[in-house]
């Protein structure tokens, strides 16, 4: 039982990190950024490239080095997110919603197959692996590395929450979410704020990508596809546009999958998880915490 909960929370924290970027972007410009999962993939590859450039390291240094790589990767994917917004989404901001959606799908393919052209179709394996020996806590097997990863995820999410609720930048984001035109009239540089929101969201996805690469070891150009869908599901369950809700949605989806697998067997897991998505869309389309639609970011 505790093992199931632990499994769910661990996977769920990855979902939550990726889902946050989805949710932020949707909250601000009402765009479902389908390329978001691919920024996670881009992060994993950027981390891989940086690690390769650094060269061989002893395993004792693995964790501090990975944290440094994590930060560098967040900058890289953040900038990639900004570029994506500038090239693909900004010119279409006034266009019908459907055009934006299709552009997002196109951007997703461009990133996937662009990476395939650069890095090849073969999966790559991280040179530094977070394996670790597990110890038991209340019947669940936990490795110190898992704790570190969850710790990093929680820190990032807490930081984001602070940014959005306590800073001028966050206030500007929330203002644009409410009404972009009035915000512009009030002297907010809307384009700059949206760019920075893309930077933050993409950086979080990149961080999740590096963490997944280092923990699971295998990365490939399609790795962002499924987690993009899962992150979307998590965001809808929690309340898309709502930051604490999205975090909750990610953790909840992880738990749902874990228990779904246990109760119904592996082949039913996704049926269970996406079934819950449909349930939410019909019964409570605003998600768990999405009630206060007036303040979306």
């Amino acid at each position: 039982m505790t093992q199931l909960i632990w499994n769910g929370l661990f996977v769920g924290s990855f979902y939550a990190l990726v889902a946050l970027g989805y949710s932020m972007v949707y909250g601000i410009i009402k765009l479902l950024n389908f390329a978001h999962g691919d920024l996670y993939m881009l992060g994993a590859f950027a981390g891989f490239a940086i690690l390769g450039a650094v060269g061989g390291v002893s395993s004792a240094m693995a964790l501090p080095l990975l944290l440094a790589v994590l930060l560098a990767t967040m900058v890289v994917t953040g900038l990639a997110g900004v570029t994506l917004e500038r090239i693909a989404y900004r010119p279409l901001r006034r266009a019908p919603r459907l055009s934006l959606l299709i552009t997002a799908v196109g951007a997703s393919f461009a990133l996937e197959y662009g990476m395939r052209a650069v890095a090849g179709a073969d999966p790559r394996v991280y040179p530094v692996r977070l394996g670790g020996t597990s110890f038991e806590v209340l019947g669940a097997r936990i490795t110190p590395q898992q704790l570190v990863l969850i710790g990093v995820a929680v820190l990032l999410m807490a930081g984001l929450n602070l940014l959005v609720t306590r800073t001028r930048e966050g206030r500007a984001m929330r203002a644009i979410a409410l009404d972009p035109r009035t915000s512009a009239l009030m002297g907010i540089d809307v384009n700059a704020v949206i760019s920075r929101a893309f930077f933050v969201g993409s950086a979080l996805a990149g961080a999740a990508g590096v963490m997944a690469g280092a923990y699971y070891g295998k990365i490939d150009f399609m790795m962002g596809f499924l987690i993009g869908l899962k992150a979307f599901t998590a965001a809808v369950i929690g309340g898309i546009g709502n930051i604490p809700g999205t975090m909750l949605g990610g953790l909840l989806l992880g738990l749902l999958e874990s228990f779904g697998t246990f109760w119904l067997g592996g082949e039913w897991r996704d049926v269970f998880a996406f079934g819950v998505l449909i349930l939410f869309l019909t019964v409570r389309p605003t998600g768990l915490l999405g009630e206060r639609v007036t303040e979306r970011v």
Binding site: V11, L226, G265, G266
Partner: peptide
Amino acid sequence: IEAVTPKESDYSANITN
């Protein structure tokens, strides 16, 4: 007999089963 979803990274739930 346990079915898993291909293309994922985390199979801990299946493995617990």
